[in-house]
Design a protein around this nucleic acid. Structure first.
Lengths: 333, 333
DNA sequence: TTGTACGCGTTATCAC
DNA sequence: GTGATAACGCGTACAA
């Protein structure tokens, strides 16, 4: 399975490899007749330049790695599509890798990408361990690196972030104006975005002299989220509590909460209001349709795409943090 | 940002690059003391071999490309995770690329991967155009290629496939034994898997002397599927029809169908039974829970992972087609 | 306008 | 055990 090289083309066209290279890259003047000969040879031999060799000498692979904790979460899918669309347009190929939300996997995958000399990396929802340990900060010195959402306190990295804080506050304010008094907060175990929202929630409830109540489920991103959220909410209601509103950290949880409330005979939104987070498609297929905080996922992705591009093409190393505002989508819950 | 090379390490350790290479790859005897010197130099210089250079000479990147039409479809996510888990274990890095279901994108992405010298490729639900045009058959001669599901008639390619045919037949048989008489079939526009199921449906209905009725919606994979399916089913019922069962080509459609039936006042499963396809998580979050045909997605992915591995490591070029059986999951619909 | 020769960072080959 | 040196396939000064 010997592949044809630039040598073969040169020989077939009766010119030197230099000339072939020039025709292919179209970066130096070549006589029209020569160019034609070369192009013909390229066609008949179906020559495709070996990008490994090219990358080796140019020190650039025109490749960007995208890391995500999960490919089952529609939130990430949308963001990824946003990043992708921008980078593709700029002539980059993107490779998607998933880490199952494990910090060790994250490091491992990153090493693999670095070893393969990607030109840059975008990490969605980076693991907090790797942020606080200074791993990313160190990494950012050696390769263009952009983090999207996730823990961002005092780190020397570039970020593009959703304003989850603002979103949570907006949702809570809305619930208050609607007359809700007993607002419950539903979150997964470990994610910085959950922490942020919880903080806002606690502070908000305290400021309004209301009692706070937090329900916790295991993960939050994986397949079991819905079932776990349902259980948690149903249990809570069964225990005699009478919540009149619930704020969930993402739409999967909200779906589960809805299901749990229904199963215990509560009517949504009459008895209990529910607001989710992300505005993914699933918030629209439930009955009633879920109100949610729109995080503008596509836009977030595009923002990230443009930013990493700038980082790769200029020497812009200053670590900038860009926040994207959120919007409240009131539907039927 | 000059990276440290094997040269630097050799110099620091006072040995030749050959020796350094031997220590790193651990493939030739090296005196213990020398090895130690080299390892220290590697550590202090934080040397990481350039995989591009290595791949160039070894003619292998230890990399596999996975193509999917969509990263929003939970069916594909599961399959991908299956493939991934196997290949990772074998020491390969996988790169995921998505094509938005466009045949032209598919070709483009494949070229990019080939140019980057991936050792193999797994294509989920390949576009029919590229199958019938012989594109894949041609490609398979130059690089280990495995297709998963999709049109497989008379092509010289290796396949791993779900037995959608058997699954559809199983579901229909079940509905009959449950006494259903007016069974409707719901499908999306273009996908070979839909075609297969439709064929079985038509043949089955004819054999049982029942009238067939097919509802068609636009795409089937994208975000609008649920809404479109709901509309289609609601319209159908409003037109005066009284279906007592519906077989949908995937779970998204089944969710929409359920919603449509409900909106027209039909009770599921009392008035009308619904069976979906795939057994994705969403089939479990509806009320009632959806019955569906389990396609064993993870297992399918693992099968694919093992198969492409064999193709890459041996010269096993015979194009084999492996079918994975489906199972009927009866829940509440 | 074209060609020669070197270098990118590794591993493979063959001496010693 | 170890070290020169030639590959791998391509881009690009430099020379012609």
């Amino acid at each position: 399975m010997k592949r044809t090289t630039i040598q073969d083309v040169a020989q077939a066209a009766g010119v030197s490899i230099t000339t072939v290279s020039r025709v292919i890259n179209n970066n130096y003047p070549v006589k029209a007749s020569t160019r034609k000969k070369v192009e013909e040879a390229v066609d008949t031999l179906k020559f495709k330049p070996n990008l490994l060799a090219r990358s080796l000498i140019q020190n650039s692979t025109k490749t960007v790695g995208i890391l995500t904790p999960s490919i089952e979460n529609l939130f990430f899918s949308e963001v990824i599509k946003g990043v992708d669309s921008i980078l593709k347009e700029k002539g980059y190929t993107t490779f998607l890798c998933h880490t199952e939300g494990e910090a060790t996997n994250e490091v491992e995958v990153i090493h693999s990408l670095v070893d393969r000399r990607v030109d840059g990396m975008v990490v969605l929802d980076p693991r907090k361990e790797n942020v606080v340990s200074g791993y990313f900060e160190e990494l950012a010195k050696r390769v263009p690196l952009l983090l999207v959402n996730g823990y961002a306190q005092g780190t020397g990295c570039s970020y593009v972030l959703n304003d989850g804080e603002g979103g949570a506050r907006m949702a809570l304010k809305y619930l208050i104006t609607e007359g809700c008094k007993r607002i419950v907060f539903l979150r997964g175990k470990k994610s910085h975005s959950y922490d942020i929202k919880e903080e806002v929630y606690l502070e908000f409830m305290k400021a309004h002299g209301m009692e706070s109540r937090i329900l916790r489920i295991k993960d939050g991103n994986d397949i079991k989220t819905v079932e776990q959220a349902k259980e948690a909410v149903a249990d809570y209601i069964r225990s005699g509590e009478k919540p009149d509103a619930l704020l969930a950290c993402n739409d999967w949880m909200a779906v589960g909460a809805l299901s749990g409330a229904k199963s215990e005979g509560l009517l949504v939104p009459k008895d209990m209001r529910i607001i989710g987070f992300d505005n993914t498609i699933i918030s629209m297929i439930t009955e009633p349709k879920l109100s949610t905080v729109d995080q503008q996922m596509t836009k977030l992705g595009q923002l990230a795409g443009n930013r990493i591009y700038k980082m790769m093409t200029t020497k812009d190393i200053e670590n900038q943090k860009t926040y994207l505002e959120t919007r409240l989508m009131i539907r039927e819950s």
